[in-house]
């Protein structure tokens, strides 16, 4: 199967501290891939490297077989149109309304007529479950959950092939987080999106992910959810088979 996103031999260092040593990761078309790791394991750094916001000390990132560092500026720009991102804190542009936030990537990448711009922005806003009057609001007027959804709407603005989510459910109440999971599953099924999700939320992993990559000791161990649960690595055992993980596993088998 063709890897949509492929990371090989990634090394990232901050001063004398090595975050990633020889990290490999493959994400295949149409899957939801969860990235898990302890605090400071380098999940966000990995995401930033994939996005090209950080130059790795060694290693390659390939989209559809094309290496990120070898791309021309135009290719990079085109690629940014194929990848949607949400940030941990939302990172909505505070001076723009939700609608304008969604329209900004459209204006930069597509040549849309005015009506198309309005309707498509509204479409994306409603797609993520926000009401039409939310579209006219500024980020400061939104609740935490709405900010997350608005961030997702902006990430979906260009109908990306790949969606990168950084902690999409952090800071949401369990009901809000569950609703976000359902939204993600819906989008994944309807739009055939490939999703890479950094998360700490075990519920979210069990509900949405096909495969999971765990960052331990600067490397990534990736497997299906069942495979990961049988992995003998002590950190992985503690993470998935600890008190909270066991509870969830019980729930999953029960249903």
């Amino acid at each position: 199967m063709e890897a949509l996103l492929e990371v090989r031999g990634l090394v990232n260092r901050f001063g004398r501290q090595t975050v990633h040593r020889d990290l490999d990761m493959s994400v295949y078309r149409g899957e939801v891939f969860g990235i898990v790791g302890g605090s400071g394991a380098g999940k966000t750094v990995l995401l930033r490297t994939i996005l090209g916001l950080r130059n790795p000390d060694a290693g390659t990132v390939r989209f559809l077989g094309q290496e990120l560092s070898g791309m021309s500026a135009a290719q990079r720009f085109a690629l940014k149109g194929r990848v949607g991102v949400t940030f941990q804190q939302g990172a909505l542009f505070s001076a723009l309304t939700v609608r304008e936030n969604v329209q900004l990537p459209m204006l930069e990448h597509l040549r849309l007529p005015a009506r198309g711009l309005e309707e498509l922005a509204l479409l994306k806003v409603q797609l993520v479950g926000l009401s039409a009057d939310t579209a006219g609001k500024y980020p400061a007027e939104l609740s935490g959950g709405m900010v997350k959804r608005a961030g997702l709407a902006r990430a979906l603005a260009l109908d990306p092939a790949l969606l990168l989510l950084d902690e999409p459910t952090s800071g949401l109440d369990p009901i809000g987080a569950a609703a976000f999971d359902e939204l993600l599953i819906y989008l994944h099924q309807e739009l055939k999106l490939t999703v890479v999700m950094v998360t700490h939320d075990l519920d979210s992993i069990f509900r949405t992910c096909n495969r999971v990559g765990v960052i331990v000791d600067g490397r990534m161990i990736s497997d299906t959810l069942e495979g990961i649960m049988r992995n003998p690595h002590p950190w992985i055992r503690a993470y998935f088979c600890g008190e909270r993980g066991r509870h969830l596993r019980g729930l999953k088998h029960a249903t």
Binding site: E119, L122, L123, Q126, A132, A135, E190
Partner: peptide, 18 residues
């Protein structure tokens, strides 16, 4: 196309008059 269904479902309401 399934995406058309999604679009129609989302845009059924009236456009808000901005």
């Amino acid at each position: 196309p399934p995406t058309l269904t999604v679009v129609s479902r989302c845009l059924t309401g009236e456009m808000p008059d901005e």
